[in-house]
Design a protein around this nucleic acid. Sequence first.
DNA 1: ACAAATAGAACGAACGTTCGATCTTTTCGA
DNA 2: TCGAAAAGATCGAACGTTCGTTCTATTTGT
Lengths: 248, 248
Amino acid sequence: MMSESKAEAAVTPPASRKRRVIRFDRFMESLHLSKQEIYRRSFDEKQSEGKIRKDRTVVRNLDRIFGAVLKISNQKGFKAMSMRDLSRESGLSMGALYNYFSGKDDLLEMLQHQQRLMSATILERSIAGAVDPLEKLRSMVVTHLYLSEAMQPWFYFSYMETKNLSGEEREKAIESERATEKMICDILIEGQQKGVFVEKDPLLSASLIKAVLQDWYLKRGKYAERKITVDRFAEFVMDWIEAWVVKM
Amino acid sequence: MMSESKAEAAVTPPASRKRRVIRFDRFMESLHLSKQEIYRRSFDEKQSEGKIRKDRTVVRNLDRIFGAVLKISNQKGFKAMSMRDLSRESGLSMGALYNYFSGKDDLLEMLQHQQRLMSATILERSIAGAVDPLEKLRSMVVTHLYLSEAMQPWFYFSYMETKNLSGEEREKAIESERATEKMICDILIEGQQKGVFVEKDPLLSASLIKAVLQDWYLKRGKYAERKITVDRFAEFVMDWIEAWVVKM
DNA sequence: ACAAATAGAACGAACGTTCGATCTTTTCGA
DNA sequence: TCGAAAAGATCGAACGTTCGTTCTATTTGT
C-alpha cells in the first residue's frame, strides 16, 4: 500500500492530481453546509436566556460580522480594528453589532472557538477511515491542508491573535495546537512499532511536519503568487515526509 | 571539506555536538560586541542634524527601550503596548523616550530595521566561506538557527508585527524574508547543476526549509519546554533536509 | 554654570461601549 | 383579508476612558 501510492504519484501525477481536486471540491461543499449549523448552535449556547432571535437573521449577521472581522484583522490586526471599522465593513451599526457579542474580547473568543470547533471535528473524522500508518499520515496531512485552504482566514487569524486572548481561552488555543501535533506524533509512533517507519524522534518529526503544514496558511499570498495549488503542495509535502519517515 | 564535516557528524555525534556549542558561544559574543556599534550607527544616520548626544547614554537607553519594547510586544502585541507601559518597563519618562524616536510608528520601524540589518550582514557572511553546495546549505541552516536563537525576540517581533508597518517599510520586510528563501533556493539549484542534489522543485524545497527554520523562533517556548537545544534541532533539521535533497 | 537629559502634567483625538429613538417584521382579532 | 398592536432588530449620537504626543520646569553630569 505504501509503495503503491508512492509509485502511482510518481508515474501518473496528472491523474492523481485531478482526482484530488475533486475531493477538495466535495470537501468545500460539506464545509459550507455545516457552517450555518455551527454558527447557530454556538450562538444558542452562549445566551441561553434573554433575547431569542430568528435563525435566519442570526446566521446572516454572524456571517457578515465574522467575514468583516477576518478581513480587517488579517490586514492590520485585531487590536488595530476599531468597532467603527467593523461597523462600516459589516454594514451593521454599532448598536446592532452589540446584539451579537458582549464586547470586543468576546468577539475574539467567538472566532477562536469557531475555528477550534470546526478543525477538531473534521480532523478527527479524517483519520478514522485509514488503517495503516502511512495512509493515516497521508490522510492527516491532506485533510489539514484542505481544511486550512478552505478556512485560511480563520486559521491565519487564530494563529496571529492567540496572544490577545486572556488566561483560560489562551490555554485552550495552545492545547488545541498541541493536539494536532500529538495526532501526527501518534501516527509516527504507530508506524515505528509496526516496523514501516524509521526509528527517529517522533515528536521532533511531528513538529517539523506541523511547521510545514502551518506555512501553507501563514504564507498563503506567497504560494498564490507562485500559482502553487493545494494539491501540488500536498503532493510535494507528502513526498518530502515519506523520504524521511518511511523505511526503505 | 563537505564529506569531512558530514562524516564527522554522522560517526561522532557527541563530539560534533559539543564542538557546535562552543561555536554558538563565540557566535553570541561576536553578536553582543557589534550590537552597540549598530545601535550607535543607525541612530546617527537617523538624525543627521540637531541634537548631538553622548554615545554612552544613547546606547544604554536604546538598549533599555528596545528590550522593553520586545518584552511587552512579544507578550501582548505592539499595538497593545502603550507608551506608558513602555515608560514603566524601560524606566524612562515619556519625555525622555521621545528623544530617541519621533513616534510609535518610528519606533516600530527602528526595530524592524535593526533586525534586518543584523540578519542580512551575518547570514551573507556565513555562506561566503563554504565551497560545495552541501556545505553551504549546512552553513546557511546552522547560522540561521544560531542567529534566530541569539536574537529570538527580534525575529519573533519582526514576524508578528510586519502587518503593522505601512507601505514602503512593509515591502522591505517582505523582500528581506524572500531574500533568505532565495539564498537557500540558489544553493539548491547550484547543487542540482553540480549533480549532488536530486532534481526537485528548488523553490518549493526552499519554502519548506524556511518554514522549518522559522518554527524555531516562532515556537521557542515549546522547544524550551521539551529541552531541545539549538544544536539538537539543527542536527535534526539537517538530517531531514539531507534525506530529501542529497543524491544517493 | 551651562548644556544635556529627564520628568510628568496637560491636550486633543480616538477608542469601546451604552441607550433611548426609530425602523421592520410578525402576530392576531375582526 | 387586513390593519393595528407587539416584538424584533437597527440606528447613531453621546459618554467616560485611554491613547499618543507635546511642552515647560527640573535634575543631572562635567
